[in-house]
Design a binder for these strands. Structure first.
Length: 152
DNA sequence: GCCAACGTTGGC
DNA sequence: GCCAACGTTGGC
C-alpha cells in the first residue's frame, strides 16, 4: 500500500473544489514519470493534496484514489489545453485516475516545515527545481505530516 | 510577475 | 545522438 502526493494550483483547482465535487478525474498529467506513478496507483490508496504556486505552498489535506489508471480523454480533445495530437486511441499516451475527497487539514503543513522534517530529507518534493506533480509518499512521511496536523 | 530549473522537441 | 531553443513549473 503506497501513499501519494498530488500537486495542484489552487487558482485552477483547489482541495476545496475537490471537497465540493466529491470526486474528480485527475486529468492533464503530461509528464512520463508522473504518468508511470499514476499507472501504479491502486484504488483505496491515500493521497496528500499539495497546493503549489500560492502564497504558502504546502500540504493542505487528504484524498483517496477512487479508480485504477485509465486513458485521459483530454488528450484526444482538440479543444482541450491538454490535447496531444501525437497520442492515438490505439496507444494512449496519458492516463488519469479518479480522486475522491477525504479531508482538509485544520492547519496546512507548509513546504517550509516539510523542508525541516527528517522524513522528507530524501524527498523529491523539497529538491530545488523539482517539477514532478505526482510523487510517492513513504509511511514515515505520511505519519510525520499527520502528526503535525488535525483534520477538519 | 520574475526567473531558475527542468523536460521535450526538432534540426542537424 | 547531440544540444539549442522552447514551453512549463513553481518558489519566491
Amino acid at each position: 500500500m503506497t501513499c501519494w502526493l498530488l500537486k495542484t494550483e489552487p487558482d485552477a483547482f483547489s482541495l476545496e473544489d475537490l471537497r465540493r465535487r466529491g470526486e474528480e478525474p485527475w486529468d492533464g498529467i503530461r509528464n512520463y514519470q508522473a504518468r508511470n506513478f499514476l499507472r501504479s496507483m491502486m484504488p483505496g490508496e491515500s493521497i496528500f493534496i499539495y497546493h503549489s504556486r500560492t502564497s504558502v505552498p504546502g500540504i493542505v489535506g487528504t484524498a483517496c484514489i477512487a479508480s485504477p489508471a485509465r486513458p485521459d480523454p483530454t488528450q484526444f480533445d482538440p479543444t482541450s489545453r491538454y490535447f496531444d495530437p501525437a497520442s492515438t486511441r490505439q496507444a494512449p499516451r496519458w492516463d488519469l485516475v479518479d480522486v475522491s475527497y477525504a479531508g482538509t487539514f485544520l492547519e496546512p503543513v507548509p513546504l517550509e516545515i516539510l523542508r525541516k522534517m527528517e522524513a522528507f530529507q530524501d524527498s523529491l518534493l523539497i529538491r530545488k527545481g523539482n517539477r514532478l506533480s505526482v510523487l510517492p509518499v513513504t509511511d514515515a512521511q505520511w505519519s510525520a505530516v499527520m502528526q503535525r496536523t488535525r483534520l477538519v
